[in-house]
Amino acid sequence: MILIDYDRCDYCGACVGTCPENVIHLVDTKLFIDNDGCTDCKICTYGCPVRALTFVEEPKGGARREKRI
């Protein structure tokens, strides 16, 4: 999953445009990622000018994993 560091994010929208699944949304100055639709492709983390997005492995047995099964 992708974590957003709101202390770094400058809400520029670069990640929104690059997301192949279109699951990143910019609402005013706040970025949201629908991690259920995220495929962990990490493209947004490379397009971010300020390293506000980082990929982290999901914790085992996390809520999302259960939902997938």
């Binding site: 520029c12 929208g13 670069a14 929104v16 690059t18 279109n22 910019l26 397009g47």
Partner: peptide
């Protein structure tokens, strides 16, 4: 609506930006 454009994508035009 800029680089973060949603309108075109909602309407089915592929305006995704490749890295």
């Amino acid at each position: 609506d800029g680089v973060e454009s949603q309108v075109a994508r909602w309407a089915g035009l592929n305006t995704m930006v490749k890295l």
